[in-house]
Design a protein around this nucleic acid. Structure first.
Lengths: 158, 158
DNA sequence: CTCATATTGTAGCCAAGACTACATTTTGAC
DNA sequence: GTCAAAATGTAGTCTTGGCTACAATATGAG
């Protein structure tokens, strides 16, 4: 039973993700799809979070340190930083370190709160601090506002 | 205050991810890193999960249906299926649909259980079913075994 | 049995993320 | 003030995951 009916939809669904072209996201793509585009955001969030950490803790955020903390080569970090600049999240002058724009700082703040919330919830559920920290790093990028609110509520009332 | 001292560490950290070259993962790369390599796994899991769903519900899993459900072009789906084959998770004969290998079925089963567990926990925390389903799709790929156990425990004892 | 239509498949292009290798700047010791 | 070492930056290559456009194969009507 392979070839029988079909209900076109084909055409409709075109360009998405990358730049410009939005997903359209009106079809049957039930879940998924959102996750897709979120992927690229996750990296931005990781970098911004780390840069904020470094700026606060060390007073500066240098590509080499960023690379080391993220476990990637410095070249990779530098390219990522370039993307952050393009996204208007950070500024960086050659050999002068990386800084966050207002937008970047705002994102860092949001990410930080979210991270803490996720970790706290995991711990409240009985997950060890180490595992909570580790898992949160991956999970946090996919927690919606709605769920975040529920988390806060849960922590408050127990 | 950017240029002053420094405490090298540079070299050490090299090749990683793709194929072969393992991360080494011994340095300061605290969290992150794991998340990286997991990324590519997530897609495999999504496809396998969906293929299992289709096989069970429709009796067949055709590239076109897979593409539609995932909200991607059929070409993208076909390429992904090729990767699944390479990974030994699925088989597919031209114009004959896609099937899961034993390995693929095992993965599908694990993914399914995990998905359910994550959704149940989210709901238990007060997240609406819709949001729980949606968020779980992204979250589930980053929940470790340890955390999964904690989730099961939490659900049982409450 | 033919042929239009739908489904599959292939090819070519793109951006993101990573890497290695090599080039350029800075810094800090002399 | 020089100069080696460290930090930065640049170039080139790879894989993944997407897309569009075009080619090939099946199917189902008629």
């Amino acid at each position: 039973m392979i070839g029988e009916r079909q209900d076109r939809i084909s055409g409709a669904r075109s360009g998405a993700r990358s730049m410009g072209k939005l997903p359209a996201e009106g079809t049957q793509a039930r879940r998924f799809g959102k996750t897709r585009s979120a992927q690229s955001t996750a990296l931005h969030e990781d970098y911004v979070e780390l840069i904020a950490d470094l700026l606060e803790g060390e007073g500066e955020a240098r590509p080499t340190d960023i690379a080391r903390r993220l476990g990637v080569s410095h070249a990779t970090a530098i390219k990522a930083i370039a993307r952050l600049k393009r996204a208007g999240l950070a500024t960086a002058r050659p050999y002068r370190g990386v800084f966050l724009t207002q937008k970047g700082q705002a994102l860092a703040e949001r990410v930080r709160l979210r991270h803490r919330l996720v970790v706290d919830v995991l711990r409240a559920l009985g997950v060890s601090s180490e595992a909570a920290e580790a898992d949160a790093e991956g999970i946090e990028h996919y927690v919606s506002e709605h769920t975040l609110k529920a988390f806060a509520q849960f922590l408050k009332s127990r």
